[in-house]
Amino acid sequence: MKFKLILSFLLLTTCFAAFSQAKPSEKSKTHNMTANEKGLIKVSILYPYAEGKTFNMEYYETKHMPMVAGFLGANLVKYTIEKGLSAGAPDQPLPFMAIGTFYVKSLSEYRAAIAPNIDAIRADFANYTNAIPEIFVSEVVK
């Protein structure tokens, strides 16, 4: 029991230290930032890290994400691009190489914009990654 408590404390302090020292990267991209995101739909595209998987961040940042953002039109509030650096716990594998996120006003409008372009979006994957992305859709509550 005491060992678990010490391990939990170490994990918590390590995570706190990692997040409190993190500085925003000059390369991270945010477009059309809004002060209040509550109620927006957040579509996160997560690229899992695994042995042998690759990711071309420059292509993703300059070609793929702007292409998809263009399909979304006025429904898009902003998008972000994140580069994976480490796991939350020490000596753990990186969970994701990258995460792309679109903040949109309407999920139905997002789906309507993506549907006719899905083949072009998927075909472009080969230009920047050999990983299969996971998609998580959520609503911003705060």
Rank of each mutant, 00 (worst) to 15 (best):
A123S: 07
P66D: 13
K38Y: 03
M57D: 11
F3P: 09
S8K: 14
K83Y: 06
G73T: 05
G73V: 04
L40I: 00
S86A: 05
I135N: 06
L7Q: 13
S25E: 01
G88P: 11
N130I: 08
T14Y: 11
E134Y: 09
K53I: 05
F125M: 08
P116Q: 03
I41F: 09
I41P: 01
V137H: 01
A120F: 04
A120H: 06
Y49H: 15
M57P: 02
P66Q: 09
A35H: 09
A98C: 01
A50V: 00
I81T: 06
T14V: 08
F19T: 11
Q92V: 03
T34F: 01
V140S: 02
M1C: 07
S138Q: 12
Y49D: 12
K142S: 15
L12E: 00
G73M: 01
K29W: 05
N56P: 02
F71R: 04
S108I: 07
S138A: 09
G39W: 06
M57Q: 04
G73P: 01
K83Q: 11
T34I: 10
A89N: 11
P93G: 11
S20R: 15
A120Y: 05
I132V: 12
K38H: 00
D124C: 11
M1L: 14
I99P: 00
L72A: 01
E139M: 03
L72T: 03
V43Q: 07
V104M: 02
D91W: 08
F96R: 08
M65A: 07
Y103Q: 06
H31F: 13
A22H: 13
G100K: 13
M57A: 04
P24D: 09
I132N: 10
Y47A: 02
D124M: 12
F102A: 10
A89M: 12
T14N: 13
V137I: 09
R111T: 08
K78A: 06
L94S: 12
A74L: 04
I45E: 00
V68M: 10
R111K: 14
N127R: 09
S86F: 04
E58S: 08
K105V: 00
F125L: 15
S138Y: 04
E82N: 10
S25W: 05
Y128D: 06
A18R: 08
Y60R: 00
A69L: 05
E82V: 04
E37F: 12
P95T: 05
K42A: 05
I118W: 05
N75I: 08
M1D: 03
A113G: 01
